[in-house]
Design a protein around this nucleic acid. Structure first.
Lengths: 207, 207
DNA sequence: AATGAATGTGAGTATCCTCTTCATATTCTC
DNA sequence: GAGAATATGAAGAGGATACTCACATTCATT
């Protein structure tokens, strides 16, 4: 993991200044992602997160003003990660099948650490009022990249946006389902997912 | 309709005998599905369900020994419904595209009343010890039907099971995602989903 | 080595819900 | 009208939860 502190830190009560506290905050966010993915929003309690992070509950509240601010930080981190995966896969022009392979590999990578985090973040975790905007922005960018890919491999200009939605949610569905069964690493599954993407984007000839 | 076994009523404290009580039980299950879909497992409380059903909390416990028995009843009902949809779509031999259309129509129908129920049932709601078996059986039958369809349209015998998994979870992903956006009824979406299924099953091997 | 700032602690508080029961009231069947 | 079926909802008992605060420890700087 690289040390990047450039981003405007999420709503925090206090900025960590020393290396020690930076590590603490990092541990809290990481543990939070873990708890969220493992136990869902229902099992996500600040005490549990602190314990999982090997940190006192007091330390948690030293940096995060409340529970929502913590979820916000987790969300931001995960979304940034996912976004970069798509961006990279759709970056340069490349053959369809290669694009599909890279996309699948990246997406699986982004989900293999905290398998259901993405789904929980989208479905269960509530949105801070101020985070609605960020959330919508993420969704927009997310779709944008998919749409760009669709447009590149499918000349038909008509249903690009719908296709992007269908494609992205299909991929998410497969990955989410595989995660639930601990089958994310299965190579046949990856191959078939690549197949699905390629087939859809190259356009069926069937009637 | 294949072997229709007389449904052994879910674990109940007392069998409803009069029309009045049958309606009550029905209302409770229906309200339960609604609450579960709307608020998720975290927001699923017996009191809330009773209130949503327009029934006293006492009445709920007259028929359901505990919370889990209620979830169980909801689960059984929903799964039966979904299963019948696939069974019917894959019943007789028919052209691929027609199969895809019927499947999509049925699946969307099964999800349009309680959009996220399916997902919540699979992901969040805990399983009674005795229900694990029923749950696994559902999953097995579910996949079986998909596999049958895959085998019918895709001669290659090799990855049938994996393909069935990929196909089913892709469809679920798209529907679940559309439900979250209130786009289940959008006809372009339905069309594209049909397209996705057809493309995948007809297996265009593009480069 | 000393001092003040940064960081860490965790028992404790106050609050909110939860599931479930039960004694009682109402409605139905015969 | 008797007895069974059904309905009620206040209240018990319990558990979790988010968050605070007075205090302990470690750091950076001189």
């Amino acid at each position: 993991m690289s040390t990047r502190i450039a981003k405007p830190a999420a709503r925090m009560r206090k900025q960590p200044r020393q290396a020690r506290s930076i590590a603490t905050v990092e541990a809290i966010i990481e543990a939070g992602a873990h708890v969220l993915s493992e136990l869902g929003w229902a099992g996500f309690s600040t005490n549990k997160v602190a314990e999982a992070a090997g940190v006192s509950i007091g330390s948690l509240y030293q940096y995060f003003p409340d529970k929502l601010a913590l979820v916000e930080a987790i969300r931001r981190r995960h979304f940034d990660h996912v976004l970069s995966v798509i961006r990279e896969a759709a970056a340069e022009e490349k053959p369809l099948r290669q694009f599909a392979r890279e996309l699948v590999r990246g997406m699986i990578g982004a989900h293999s650490i905290h398998p259901t985090l993405h789904q929980v973040l989208l479905d269960e975790a509530p949105g801070d009022r101020g985070s609605r905007a960020a959330h919508a922005l993420f969704q927009a960018r997310y779709l944008e990249h998919y749409a760009a890919a669709v447009a590149q491999y499918r000349k038909r200009r008509k249903d690009t946006e719908t296709m992007a939605r269908v494609l992205s949610s299909a991929i998410e569905g497969v990955i989410h389902n595989a995660a639930r069964r601990n089958m994310l690493e299965a190579p046949e599954l990856q191959k078939q997912l690549v197949e699905l993407i390629s087939a859809y984007l190259s356009g069926s000839r069937a009637t």
